[in-house]
Amino acid sequence: MHRKTEAGVNIGRRPCAVVPPGGWPRRLPPPFNPCFHEPAIVKLVAENLVVDRGGRTILDGLSLAAIGGEALLLTGPNGAGKTTLLRTLAGFLPQVSGTIRFEGGDADKTIAEQAHVVGHGNGVKANLTVHENLLFWAAFLETEAAAERVRTALTHFGLDALDHYPAAYLSAGQKRRLGLARLLVAHRPLWFLDEPTMSLDTASTTRLAVAIDAHTAGGGLVLAATHLPLGLARARTFDLPSALPGFRTTAAEARL
C-alpha cells in the first residue's frame, strides 16, 4: 500500500527531498529512500457530516480534514457540537449522512480501535491504586512492554510518587491526570480529547501540552475540544459555528 506524500501534507516533519510519482517503494532501505523512517502519514477526513442527537440536528453538513502531525483544536460556543463531533468521529455516534475516512491507519481496525478517547469521565476506579488503574488499561488495550509504558506515563503526568495509593484519595486534578496518562500507556495514532484541561492546574496543562506535542511530532493526530491555548507547537484551530438560528429539526423528524 502506497501513501501519498504531497507537499503541504507532511506538516511538522522533514519533508522528503525527492518523491517519485506514486511515492517510494516501502521496502527500499534508508540510503536509497529518504522517506523510509517517516511513519505512515495518517489523515482523518470528514465530509458533509449531519448528526442528530437528542432530537436536534447538532452538526449540519460539517466537513473537516486533519493530518497526522498536527493538533486540531475545536472551539465554538456551548452547544456548537464539539462533543458530538468527537464522538461521531470516534464512531460512537452514527451520522445521518456524510462520510468519515481514516487514511494511513490499519485498514483492519475501526477508527475507535486506533483512537484514544478521553471524555468528561476519567475511566479511573477509586478502589484500584493509581498504578493498578494504568496497568489495567495497558493490559486491556493490549500494549507491549506494559510495565515500562506505565512507568513512563506516571512519570510524565507527575503521578509516580502517588502510584501505590488508591485513586479514591486523589484530587479531581490528579484523577484527571491519571485519566490522561492512559494516552501514553498504549500507542494509538488518534487522540480525541474532550475538554482535556478540565480541573488541571497550569503545570499539569503544560504536561499535557508536552504529551500532545510529542504525539504530533511522532506523526500522531490530536483532536481536542478546548478553549485554552495550550501553547502547542503544531496546532490549528477549527471553529465550529454556533447553532444556526432558524429551522433546525432533526433529519429523522423532517422525514416524518
Partner: peptide
Amino acid sequence: GTLDVFAT
C-alpha cells in the same frame, strides 16, 4: 467514562 474506553 470507562465504557467509552471499552468501546475503543
